[in-house]
Design a protein around this nucleic acid. Structure first.
Length: 572
RNA sequence: GGCAGCGUAGCUCAGUGGUAGAGCAGGGGAAUCAUAAUCCCUUGGUCGGGGGUUCAAAUCCCUCCGCUGCUACCA
């Protein structure tokens, strides 16, 4: 049987992630992992914090901590918040782990020995104030074309021209503002990506039919523009050191570029998982050679990460000549905007994972984000839309359905599954509809089409309400108790079904729904087929429990309050 | 500047050659089990503009406009 390996793009270490980061990678990966586990597939869901690079060092500086401490603390925070969002990682590792260091150095050594790396001298901006080299975008100055005074060294935000730091007039450090900067030469290791253009293109085209358009077009664009060799080392303190046996002694004190070691951490974190669980070489069985032949590998990420997963990481693996697993299905997401603008960590604009949970439980966000995932184009978050979806879909359609049938059972059937009466034409029709809808829902999830899947899930919730209205046990109870009983029995079986089907998306609420009927296992399995059997499975006389309100509504007052608090479109 | 994606009902989005769709919002009705929650019916679009191919175009081609992103040292 096929085993399922799932990785989510690694959240960067410099602070709590916003909803845009969540919906692009971690959340869809989690929903997919839960779906696969529910279906009974052996599944491994791996994630980690991405801890290297200049922004991490600067964030630590700003926090007044050494980088190692800063990363350790931030990792713990992100892990905690992820758990509270019910992200069901099998392991949440760290790109700064020993395991990743060993693997990254292994790849670099193999690539060096095989001649796919070479040492080149580059010119870079060095700032005396910080005593460090600055990436282009950390150098600011006046744009030589439009005069904009805060143009960055890589691009002018005002006139959008692509720049080089040496183009800037009056260049200075964006960190300290110091103008004491100079261009220095520095030796770096380059990955000869250009040698792999044909191999890479063949691989990408082999996925013509099973990768989203967005992913294919971005990957092809990089190839079509001519793949350049890429520097894979940096002059930084914090990072995975380049081993002494690479680079003929010219690379002392350098570390690998974050985008070289971050994807390798997918493998590294799997090794962290195996080491932590005493599983020995099991990590290798998910990634390497014959042992991993039965593994199907899925990656989830935002569109900004696509080049690194379609070009950089695959080239690293191809260049190693070793049989590491390449991605099979790659799901790329667009961006979600906040009230018409960007989510921004630096400007504190938008909603972040920790503050989101202060407002409402994880399931509210999970459902909204998945139902409106930016799959085909960027989508837009507004508080009104969010409140509307939560109130209508979760509170009115799903919550109220569970509530009305369980309350009715408690009031009229002593809170037990009634055994009288039998299913008739109404029930048969419903079963036919649900056989179809559940199959559709399952197929959409399997194809990683989340908007369509969630629309189908919602339609299944609606079908419950439609059925109850037609069956109208509250009417029949007055004249034909057996007929009313059959309707209630079906209603309760539907609650049972919704508890199963909703679990990948809204695990906490799904558990509460399931437990209205009976205790829920840790992984709520996919409902057995056919529906005719599943929807007649509850035993007569079984006690059920009407749950408390599953979803509270978002009030207009809350919407107003949150818009102000989170700096939405209330422009002066 | 180059490249890519997007532009369909008031809103959020499906729909890739064969008589324009869904959900929400709006309008009318039914029901009274339920978190005033539900269910049924319904109004609403010259598919960004223009040109072309075709018996037939939201869909293919050209062009223009708008929005967003990427442009290799942010990650």
């Amino acid at each position: 049987m096929t085993r399922i390996l799932i990785t989510s793009a690694l959240p960067y270490i410099n602070g709590v992630k916003h909803l845009g980061n969540l919906v692009g990678s971690m959340l869809p990966a989690d929903v997919y992992a839960r779906f696969r586990r529910a279906r009974g597939d052996e599944t491994l869901f791996i994630c980690a914090t991405d801890e290297h690079g200049t922004p991490a060092e600067l964030a630590a500086l700003e926090a007044g901590q050494d980088v190692a401490t800063y990363c350790r603390e931030q990792h713990a925070i992100q892990k905690e918040i992820g758990k509270r969002f019910a992200l069901s990682w099998d392991f949440f590792g760290r790109s700064s782990s020993v395991q990743n260091r060993e693997l990254t150095q292994h790849f670099a050594r193999v690539l060096w020995k095989r001649g796919h790396l070479d040492v080149r001298t580059t010119k870079q901006v060095y700032s005396h104030a910080e005593k460090r080299f600055l990436p282009d975008r950390y150098v600011i100055g006046s744009c030589p074309y439009c005069g904009y005074e805060r143009a960055r060294g890589d691009q002018c935000e005002n006139c959008t021209r692509v720049l080089d730091p040496t183009d800037l007039i009056d260049p200075r450090s964006a960190v300290s503002g110091s103008g004491e900067i100079e261009i220095r030469e520095s030796a770096h290791l380059f990955l000869k990506q250009s040698e792999f253009v044909e191999q890479l293109r063949a691989w990408i085209e082999s996925h013509e039919n099973d990768w989203p358009n967005l992913v294919l077009s971005i990957a092809r664009k990089w190839l079509d523009e001519g793949l350049k060799d890429r520097g894979i080392t940096r002059d930084l303190e914090w990072g995975i050191p380049v081993p002494d046996d690479i680079g003929d002694g010219k690379l002392k004190g350098k570390v690998f570029y974050v985008w070289f070691d971050a994807p390798i951490e997918y493998i590294g974190a799997t090794k962290e998982w195996a080491d932590a669980g005493g599983k020995g070489d099991a990590w290798r069985g998910w990634w390497y050679g014959e042992a991993a032949k039965d593994v199907r590998y899925y990656e989830f990420m935002g569109k900004d990460n696509i080049p690194f997963h379609t070009v950089g990481f695959p080239v690293t693996i191809m260049a190693s000549g070793e049989p590491w697993k390449l991605v099979d299905r790659l799901k790329g997401a667009n961006y979600i905007n906040y009230d018409g603008g960007k989510f921004s960590t630096s400007q504190k604009r938008g909603v972040f994972m920790d503050t989101a949970l202060e407002l409402l439980p994880a399931d509210y966000w999970r459902y909204y984000l998945m139902a409106n995932m930016p799959e085909s184009s960027d989508s837009n978050f507004t508080w009104e839309h969010f409140a509307g979806v939560v109130n209508k879909d979760l509170a009115d359609v799903l919550g109220n359905f569970v509530n009305r049938i369980t309350k009715f059972t408690a009031a009229r059937f002593e809170g037990c599954v009634p055994g009288e009466g039998s299913y008739g034409a109404e029930e048969t029709g419903l079963i036919v509809e649900l056989d179809h809808r559940v199959a559709q829902y399952s197929a959409h999830l399997e194809q990683i089409e989340f908007r369509k899947a969630l629309a189908e899930l919602r339609a299944i919730w609606v079908a419950g309400n439609e059925y109850l209205t037609r069956a109208a046990p509250w009417t029949h109870i007055k004249s034909d108790r057996a007929k009313a009983a059959a309707g209630v029995r079906m209603g309760l079986n539907l609650v049972h079904l919704l508890g199963h089907l909703s679990w990948p998306v809204i695990p906490t609420a799904a558990r509460a729904i399931h437990e209205a009927i009976q205790p829920a296992p840790k992984v709520i399995p996919w409902p057995g087929e056919p529906m005719a059997e599943f929807l007649d499975a509850l035993e007569a006389g079984q006690q059920i429990h009407a749950p408390d309100v599953l979803f509270a509504k978002v009030t207009d007052e809350q919407v107003v309050e949150w818009k102000v608090r989170f700096g939405g479109e209330t422009k002066p």
